[in-house]
Amino acid sequence: MSILEIIGGILILIGSAFLFLGALGIFRMPDVYNRLQAGTKATTLGGMSLVLGVGFLEPSWMLKSLIIIIFIAYSNPISSHALARAMYRRGHYPLIKDKDKEKMDAYREVVPHKTKEEEKS
C-alpha cells in the first residue's frame, strides 16, 4: 500500500462516518431548524472528505473531484438557508426551550408571527 492509498482510505472512512452522523442527526433532532443544522454541516464535510479520498486513490480524477468538492461546499449552505427562511415565513417557528420566548426569537421583528385566526384562513 502506498502513502496515497492510506490517506485516501482514511479520508473515505472519515467521510462516510460523518455522512452517517448527519443522517442520524436528521433522524434524532426535534424540529426542522435543528435538523438543518445537523444535516448541512455533517453532510458537507462528509461528502467533501469522501470525494477527496477517492481523488487521492485515483490521482487522475483529482480535478473533477475538486469541482465536486467546491460545488458541495458552495451549494449546501445556500439550500439550507433557503429552506430555513421558507419554513419560517410559512409559519413553522423554531422550538425554543428557554422561558423568555420573545427575546430568544429575534427574527420575529422581520416576519411577525401569525395568529391563530390568520392560520385558519
Partner: peptide, 11 residues
C-alpha cells in the same frame, strides 16, 4: 431536508 441529505449521500 431529508431529500437534501439523500442527494449528498447519493453523490
Amino acid at each position: 431536508v431529508a431529500l437534501d441529505t439523500l442527494t449528498t449521500i447519493g453523490v
